[in-house]
Write a protein that binds this DNA or RNA. Structure first.
Lengths: 211, 211, 211, 211
DNA sequence: CATGAATGAGTGTTCATTCAT
DNA sequence: CATGAATGAACACTCATTCAT
C-alpha cells in the first residue's frame, strides 16, 4: 500500500523543517524588516518552538543569509546561466533578461529582501557585505557582460559601461522599492504595469545605446 | 522693546530646542536607522538630557515623524517650485533639472530623509501617505510636464509619459539609496561620480526620446 | 538644623548605590558562585532593579572585578605597605604578616572570593587572568620578598624561594577552602582555631628555615 | 553455558554503559566544571545519544553525584590502606607517604575529583558529608598516626597534632588545586616540579618537627 | 522647565529534559 | 532499550520611558 511508502511522521517533518522555517522567515522579514522580526515569531509561524529554530539555524543572521541564498542568489544564478546560453542580438538578450528578472524575482515576495537590505544595511554591516558579495556583484557583472557583448558585436556604442549598467538596474530596483514601500506606491494614480514599464525602459536604453 | 528683540539666552535656547533635537535626530536616523538610534544619543547630540527630549516629543516614533515632516516640506517647497521657469530646448531643461536636483537635494544630508521614508514607510503608513502627497506626486508632475513640453515642441517622440517619468526619476532615487545604504555602495569597483552618472543618464534618455 | 545638611534623597542614594551593589554581589558570589549568581538577584538584594545594576557596572564580569578590587586587591596592597614599614627580625615579620592576613582577609566574608576563583577559574578564563595579575602575583611577590629579606639578614637559610613561598601560602589557602567548602569543614571533629593554626604553622616554617 | 559466559555484544555494551558514561562525565567535569559541561557532550564522549544518558541517570546532578561517589571510594580504599605497613624512621615514612600520594593520586586525573568536590560542595551538601566521612577523616587519621608514631620514637617533638596534620596536608591539596585551576597556575613564573616541591616541603616540616 | 536615576518589558540564544518513533 | 527532534524556562543585557528632585 501507499501507506508503507510514507516515512514516519517525525522523519518527514524533520526534512521539511528548514523549508518551513525559511518560508516563515521570508514572510516575516519582508513584512516587518530584519530587526523588527523576532525569532520566536518566525518559529511560531513555522509551527515550532523557539528552540527548534536554533536547531536548524545557528543565529538570526544565519537564518537571514539562508533566506537570501534560497531566494535571491538562486535567481541571480539562474539569470547568469540563461544569459550564457542565449543566441541572438544583444538588444534582445538585454530585454529578455530584464523581463525574466521581473517575472522570476521582482514580482515575487522574495524581492522584499532587496528592499530590506537597502533599508537595514547600515544597521547590519555583515549582512550588507554578504548581500553585496552574493548578489550585487554577480548581478552587476551579468549586466556589464551583456553590454560588452553588444559592443563587440557592434550593436551598442558610445557608452560608459558602469554608468549604463546602473542605468539599467536602477529602474528595476525602483520597481522593487515601489512594490514594497507604501511611500512610493502610487495608490491613487494608475499603478503602471511593471512588465510594460520594463519593456519601455529596455527600449529606451537600447535606443540610446544604438546611436 | 528690547526685551522683545533680545530675549534672554535661556529663553532663546528654549525656543530652539525642538529644532536642535530635530536636527540631531535627522543626522542619527539617516546614519543609523530608526531602530538603531537611541533616544539618549539624540538628546546628547542636541546638547540636552534624555528627559528633555520626551518633554518635546512624546515618543521616539513621534520624533521620527516630526523629523520627516519637517524636512520633507522644506525640500519640496524649495526645490520643485524653483524649477519651472526655464526657457530653451526641453532636452536642456531635462538635463538641468536632473543635475540641479542632485546639487540642491540629492547630494545633501536632507536626501537621507528620502531613504528614511522609503525604509520605514511600512511601519508608518501616515508618513507614507503624507510623503506621496507632498513629494512624489508634485515631483512626478514636474517631470511629466517637461516631457509634454518636449513632445509639443517636437523634440521628444514615441514615449509613454508615466513610464518615461519613472525611468527618469528612478536613477536619481538609486543614487540616493546608494549614498545612504552600505549595501549598494560599490566599495570594490570605482564609485561612479554622481553628476557624471546623471549627465550620462540624461543623455541616454534624451537620445532615446529623440528617435 | 541638621536636616539642612542632609543632601537630597536621590543624590544620597546615587552615591551609595555602587557600594550597596558591591556588597550584595559579594554576598551572593560567595554564597552561590559566579555562574550561579543571577544579576537580577544581585540587584534585588541591593534593593534596586536589574537595569540599575547595569547602570553602574557594564557587565556581570566587571561587577565581579569591582568586587575583587574592593575586597581582595585592597587587602593585598595593605599587606604590602605594612611589610615595607616593618622593622625587626624577618621571622617576626613573616608571622605577623600571616596572622594579619587572616585577621584582615581570611576571616572575612571576602575570602570567599578566593574560593570562588579557584573553583570557577576554568569556566571564566578572563576572570582568572585578572585575579592572577591583581592578586596572586603581588601576594607571591610579597612573601618572596620577606624570604629574601630573611636570607640577607642571615636568619633564613637553605631554602628554595618559590617552593617555600608556596609552602607558606598553601595552608592559608587551605584555611580559606576549609572555611568556604562544606567538604573540608570538620564539623564533627574540633574545628581548629585558625589563628592558632597559623601561628603554629609559622613557627614550623621558621624553625625549618633556621637550620 | 556459553550464553552466560559470552553475552552478545549488545548485552555486554549495555552493562558497561553506566561506567562509560561515568568516565566521560569525569573527564568533562574535571576539565570544564559542572555548569559548563553539557550533558550532550558527556553522552557523545561515551558514544551514546543524549536520551540514553537520561536513561541511566535521572538528571545531570545525579550524574555528578555518581561520578564523585564512584571515584572517591576507589581512591581511598586503594591509597590509605596500602600506606600503613612501613618499617623505618617516621621522617622517612612521612616523606614516602607524601610522595606516594602524589604519584598514586595527585598526579592522576582522579585528583580532579577532589577539586570538583571542593568547588561544588556547597551546592551538594550530601556529597560534602559523604566526602568527609570517606576521605577527609581517614586521611587525617593516617597522617596523625604517623605523627604520633614519630613522637613515640622520639623523632618528632613540640608540635600540635591537628595543626601539623593540616600543615602537612594543605600543600598537597594546594598542588591539586594548582593542577586543576587556571587561577593558581603560575604561567609566568617557573611552574614548580610537584615532586620536588613535596620533597622540599616534607623536609621543611621534618626539620621543624625535629627541634 | 530640565535633569538623569531608575525602571522593567523585551530579545537572542542556550541547554537540560522529554517523548514519539 | 535507544534515539534525537522538539521543547521552553532561563539569563545577560538594552533602552524607551517615567518621575522625584
Amino acid at each position: 500500500m501507499l501507506d508503507t511508502l510514507i516515512p514516519p511522521k517525525r522523519e518527514r517533518r524533520k526534512q521539511h523543517r528548514p523549508g518551513e522555517l525559511l518560508e516563515a522567515a521570508l514572510d516575516l522579514f519582508v513584512e516587518k524588516g530584519f530587526a523588527a522580526t523576532k525569532s520566536e515569531e518566525v518559529a511560531a509561524r513555522a509551527g515550532v518552538s523557539k528552540g527548534t529554530l536554533f536547531l536548524y539555524f545557528p543565529s538570526k543572521e544565519e537564518l537571514f543569509k539562508a533566506v537570501v541564498r534560497e531566494n535571491v542568489v538562486k535567481a541571480v544564478t539562474e539569470g547568469v546561466l540563461e544569459a550564457a546560453n542565449f543566441k541572438g542580438p544583444s538588444r534582445q538578450l538585454l530585454k529578455n533578461l530584464m523581463l525574466a528578472w521581473w517575472r522570476r524575482y521582482g514580482s515575487t515576495k522574495a524581492s522584499g529582501i532587496t528592499k530590506l537590505i537597502i533599508s537595514e544595511a547600515n544597521s547590519f554591516p555583515e549582512l550588507a557585505a554578504f548581500y553585496q558579495e552574493e548578489v550585487i556583484f554577480p548581478a552587476m557583472k551579468l549586466v556589464k557582460d551583456v553590454l560588452e557583448r553588444g559592443r563587440m558585436q557592434g550593436e551598442f556604442k558610445n557608452f560608459h559601461t558602469d554608468h549604463t549598467a546602473m542605468a539599467i538596474i536602477s529602474p528595476l530596483l525602483f520597481l522593487i522599492m515601489s512594490k514594497h514601500s507604501t511611500a512610493l506606491c502610487h495608490e491613487g494614480s494608475a499603478q503602471p504595469n511593471p512588465e510594460e514599464f520594463i519593456a519601455q525602459h529596455a527600449d529606451l536604453i537600447v535606443r540610446g545605446l544604438s546611436i
